[in-house]
């Protein structure tokens, strides 16, 4: 028996990195995956690939998570096609860095719209289906910097800290309907985005990780599989660090 057999899942921000790997792992575990990306057509090929590889359904749904109407249409589509939603993974987000003194209000709005407000909107929408079926698992992607803070990343850190607070508050409110809400706080994960900081910086960062290696997208996706599955049926309101004991 696969861990997510027939579970209907919506994962946001899946065009690359952690989101893309979560789609792959969920499909591998037998889930019916609705994979979100912003750019129309951008994940058609990969969705088809995972669908064929794992014999399940991977459906691309294109919308910008900051567009509440687009998100609503996606939830309605899932309701119409599946009649239920078992798992929501709020993975989409942006990272924009700026030092104190140079943080514009536009940057604050942009980061909070993508990383915080969209998460609240999607939780509200998902709850429309999960509340009725009286079950569900919501997984939010926070970050180690949302818990520890990071110099030069005040806004991003604040947004990911907000995601942790949203997770704990939503877990308290939705537990009565058997809806679990947890967050994953990845540390330094080997993605294209992370690699863009350059080899020298990567070497310096590696010294901050007690396990001596960067995390992989699979490390994070495996944590998402666990939180989505019934193996974590009594776990809610938790922020799960996936960081190899890193410090920032």
């Amino acid at each position: 028996m696969k861990l997510l057999e027939k579970k209907v899942c919506l994962v946001t921000g899946t065009s690359r990195g952690i989101g893309g790997e979560i789609v792959k792992r969920f499909a591998q575990e037998g889930a019916v995956v609705y994979a979100n990306a912003r750019k129309e057509g951008s994940i058609d090929e990969s969705s088809k690939h995972w669908e064929d590889a794992y014999g399940t359904s991977v459906v691309p749904v294109y919308f910008d998570v900051t567009d509440e109407n687009g998100a609503k249409q996606a939830i309605m589509k899932i309701k119409k096609e599946q009649g239920r939603l078992d798992v929501l993974v709020n993975n989409a987000g942006i990272m924009k860095d700026s030092v104190i003194g140079m943080i514009s209000s536009e940057l604050m709005k942009e980061v909070f719209s993508a990383n915080v407000f969209s998460v609240i909107s999607l939780i509200q929408l998902a709850n429309k289906l999960m509340g009725r079926q009286k079950s569900g698992s919501i997984i939010n992607l926070s970050s180690i910097v949302g818990v520890e803070g990071s110099a030069g990343q005040l806004v991003y850190s604040a947004s990911k800290g907000a995601v942790a607070a949203i997770t704990k508050a939503a877990a308290k409110e939705l537990a009565i309907n058997n809806i679990r809400v947890n967050a994953i706080a990845p540390g330094m994960i080997d993605t294209d985005l992370f690699r863009s900081i350059g080899e020298e910086n990567i070497e310096r960062n590696l010294k901050q990780i007690k396990m001596g290696r960067l995390g992989s997208t699979t490390d994070v996706a495996n944590a998402a599989v666990f939180l989505a599955s019934d193996l974590s049926s009594y776990i809610t309101g938790q922020i799960l660090g996936v960081d190899g004991e890193a410090s920032v």
Partner: peptide, 18 residues
């Protein structure tokens, strides 16, 4: 109120905006 909204959404096959 939330139960009422859920029941209306089911009855009329809609999804109400916040």
């Amino acid at each position: 109120h939330m139960n009422l909204v859920a029941a209306l959404e089911d009855a009329f096959d809609i999804m109400m905006d916040t």
